[in-house]
Design a protein around this nucleic acid. Structure first.
Length: 795
DNA sequence: TCATACCGGGG
DNA sequence: GTGTACGGTATGA
């Protein structure tokens, strides 16, 4: 009895592993290209030798249908799987799912044309494409995915990331529009790490055409598995495609065929040529085209710590930008090239080197996903985790189990309910503790077995269970591996990928039925309801232990503890409350801070015990904010949290003084804007409405700009404006020394109304007025600064 | 004035 | 034949 049930569990465990990883052990797949005719090309890099092999294999194209009706017209040529002579085979899957007929043929065209013919007859109108049948009646995957689902193969088995042949290239162009601008330089980084810079010999069509031919030749010679760049699909490939077409160059970047790039539909890509509302991405069969911008977005979605998503900002943030890295504003690159080409060569070379490193550091999650889900690597790199990763895993699991899949189903109108957010107090508090539950929603799903109602196989919960367990193992393995080792890197990437998928399981259910197959708003609401109850319980129990609650959001809470408490008291209290929560829901002591300025929900400043100031939320950090204001905020909050109120006023007065005496460089008062109107368009409306950014351009003598240009502008005296270079670009400034003709009164008002006001919650109104009174206007009746204390306002 | 549409990135 | 957010500015009724 006992051994039998253990065996049963083993079997269940084994099939659940297959849901996660597939089942075919074929190692080293680096690319798959399949056609509807039943032929698939598989490129494999042998893990032992690194050698590339190409295999051409047969597979049986398949579809899932909700009925066989539309195929009955073929008569005897339709037969049960395994029967002789059947041109089209079918199999009836188990369970209540609507899509229960798995049909297949040697050639997918036989299948689809028979189906379209039958459907046209049944519906009395011409059905020209499978998608016209609606995805509630047919499930049709791309040929590659049909192949991967049917075989249980996945990419990259037993192949470490650094065995992939990865190449990077980056275009330097005279502008953003491929209609009117040219490519004049292409930097290339080979898989070996060697870099080279290709250049057009002059600005003729023939020179540009030759440059593109050189790139194609380098790609063919290096024969990479993967081509990477930042915004590759948004800029470089579309630009290259348009230029190549105009110049009559064939962009043979793939491993098969002699034609140019192919296309696929994609959410974020470039506007399609035929239909501007459609977005497409380019494909080069045999290679995977990876955009590091996708990896950056995915990374920042989880961490929310990147200052921006541009290559330079990311490289600096990750600490991979070299000290002497060349920076040139985008709209100056071609102009700088004409007088100092060497500088642009260095710039372009750094671009590809940084891209290679960003891809290595942030691309691991997509690489790990490609070892699990039955999709091409490049699809998994830009896929959303719900429809792009979980859905394919679930489809493969159901087919592997021989179970029918439910069709997409719209919700019943029940609205989706979200998380809780409480602001208990604002102002200044001391001795702060942050406690939170890691992965609250997946934990609740697991603890209370909340899964989609129609997932009769229980695959989503099983996959989440497996991922959580496997992720713990990956985290432990990463920790055990040597720092910087391939093993650590691989395990960390695996852990990141698994976290991504686990955290999407809830979003998968909450998404509408048009998006995900197993969407279930009731289950999703049950998760958030349990989440709110858990947060409320945490808050109640913490308050009952004598803490002051400050802010609670979804899965975490900030609170202040009494003066007499030690860190041990803090941790013990969190542990006590943690013990009261449901199993699998782990409340953790996340951090402790000396003080906090709570401004608004999700907007606060924290002072660490080490004296470091952390600013969170848009009120405290914004890329558009004027640098002098950010500096003021930081200094003033430092004084505030140190309990030095006269110091806060000193910082305010010193900033006002520096503005009025023009000691601040113009850069300090400038803000970062993106120009969205062309010069012509602005001139149309200039008479009715003047806009600072364009006035600044005109006043600086820059009358020609492109939509999309980004500049720093400031307001000058008399309502005019000016453009200023940031310090790192100052070397290229065409203008002379800083004139500092900014509107000091305007920026003084901005300091008071926009920046100082972020400290308002820290004081009573009267005290706030005293601290930020104009110089010389401190009234006799105002409180003395020495007697003012910051406050905490309970809500 | 308020609602909605669009953007993030690339030279 | 696709589909992760959200907080901003820009635009239009």
């Amino acid at each position: 009895m006992h051994s039998e049930s253990a065996e049963h569990r083993d079997k269940a465990g084994q099939s659940q592993d297959e849901w996660l990883w597939g089942w075919d052990p074929t190692p080293g797949i680096v690319s798959v290209w399949a056609e509807n005719d039943g032929w698939a090309l598989v490129w494999r890099r042998l893990p032992e030798t690194g050698q590339l092999v190409r295999e051409r294999v047969r597979f049986r194209p398949w579809l899932l249908l909700d009925r066989l009706d539309d195929l009955l017209h073929v008569g005897d040529r339709l037969g049960l799987a395994g029967s002789a002579d059947a041109l089209i085979e079918y199999r009836v899957l188990d369970g209540p799912g609507e899509l229960r007929f798995l049909v297949s043929a040697e050639d997918g065209r036989t299948l689809s044309s028979a189906l379209l013919h039958g459907a046209s007859q049944r519906l009395g109108k011409r059905i020209g494409h499978l998608r016209d049948l609606g995805h509630d009646t047919v499930l049709s995957l791309s040929p590659e995915e049909q192949y991967l689902v049917a075989t249980g193969r996945t990419y990259f088995r037993d192949l470490p990331f650094d065995k992939l042949r990865r190449m990077q290239f980056d275009l330097e162009t005279t502008g953003l529009s491929p209609e009117s601008c040219r490519i004049f330089m292409i930097s290339v980084r080979a898989p070996s790490g060697a870099t080279q810079v290709l250049e057009a010999r002059d600005d003729s069509d023939e020179a540009e055409a030759e440059l593109i031919r050189q790139l194609v030749a380098v790609v063919q010679a290096e024969d990479p598995d993967v081509i990477e760049n930042h915004n590759l699909h948004g800029f470089d490939l579309p630009f290259l495609d348009t230029r190549a077409e105009r110049l009559g160059v064939v962009l043979a970047l793939g491993r098969i065929g002699s034609g140019g790039l192919r296309q696929r539909a994609a959410r974020r890509g470039t506007a399609s040529e035929g239909d501007a509302r459609r977005r497409v991405r380019f494909i080069a069969p045999g290679r995977e085209l990876i955009d590091t911008l996708d990896a950056v977005l995915r990374y920042d979605f989880a961490t929310r710590e990147l200052p921006g998503h541009g290559l330079k900002a990311v490289a600096r943030h990750l600490g991979i930008a070299k000290e002497d890295r060349e920076y040139i504003p985008g709209d100056r690159i071609h102009e700088v090239y004409q007088r100092d080409p060497e500088r642009v060569r260095r710039y372009a070379t750094s671009d590809v080197e940084e891209v290679a490193e960003v891809a290595r550091m942030l691309g691991g999650a997509a690489f790990a996903l490609a070892r699990m889900a039955p999709r091409r690597y490049e699809r998994l790199a830009d896929a959303g985790a719900a429809t792009g990763v979980l859905d394919p895993l679930l489809v493969r699991a159901y087919l592997r189990a021989g179970m029918a899949l439910p069709a997409h189903q719209a919700g019943d109108g029940t609205p989706h309910q979200g998380a809780a957010l409480h602001l208990f107090a604002s102002g200044v508090a001391r001795r702060i503790v942050k406690a939170d539950v890691a992965s609250l929603y997946p934990s609740l799903m697991r603890a209370f077995r909340i899964g989609p109602k129609r997932d009769h196989l229980g695959a989503l919960l099983a996959i989440v269970d497996r991922l959580v367990e496997r992720r713990l193992a990956a985290k432990a393995a990463a920790k055990a591996a040597a720092a910087g080792s391939v093993e650590r890197y691989t395990q960390e990437a695996l852990s990141a990928a698994m976290k991504l998928v686990v955290n999407t399981a809830y979003g998968y259910m909450a998404a509408g039925g048009t998006l995900t197959r197993f969407a279930d708003v009731h289950a999703a609401n049950e998760v958030t309801r349990r989440g709110r109850a858990t947060l409320d319980l945490m808050c109640r129990e913490l308050a009952a232990r004598g803490v002051t609650l400050l802010e609670a959001d979804t899965d975490g809470v900030y609170f202040a503890v009494p003066e007499s408490w030690t860190e041990a008291d803090e941790r013990r209290t969190v542990d006590e409350v943690a013990a009261l929560l449901p199993p699998l829901v782990h409340l953790e002591f996340e951090g402790r801070y000396a003080a906090m300025l709570s401004h608004e929900p999700k907007n606060y400043a924290l002072l660490t015990y080490g004296g470091k100031l952390l600013l969170k939320g848009v009120a405290f950090r914004s890329s558009r904010a004027e640098p002098y204001g950010e500096t003021f905020l930081r200094r003033a909050i430092e004084r505030l949290l140190a309990g030095d109120i006269p110091g806060v006023r000193d910082v305010y007065l010193a900033t006002l003084d520096a503005l009025r005496r023009r000691e601040l460089p113009t850069y300090e008062v400038s803000s970062f804007v993106r120009l969205t109107k062309s010069p012509a368009k602005y001139l149309e409306t200039r008479d009715s409405r003047r806009e600072l950014a364009y006035e600044a351009m005109l006043a600086s003598g820059r009358t020609a700009w492109s939509v999309g240009d980004k500049v720093r502008v400031y307001r000058a005296k008399g309502g005019s404006g000016g453009v200023v270079e940031s310090p790192e670009h100052a070397a290229y400034a065409a203008d002379g020394p800083d004139r500092r003709d900014y509107d000091a009164d305007h920026y003084s008002r901005l300091l008071r109304d926009t920046f100082a006001s972020r400290l308002a919650r820290a004081f009573t109104p009267a005290d706030y007025a005293a601290v930020f009174a104009d110089p010389g206007q401190l009234s006799l009746f105002a409180p003395s600064l020495d007697t003012i204390h910051s406050v905490l306002n309970r809500q």
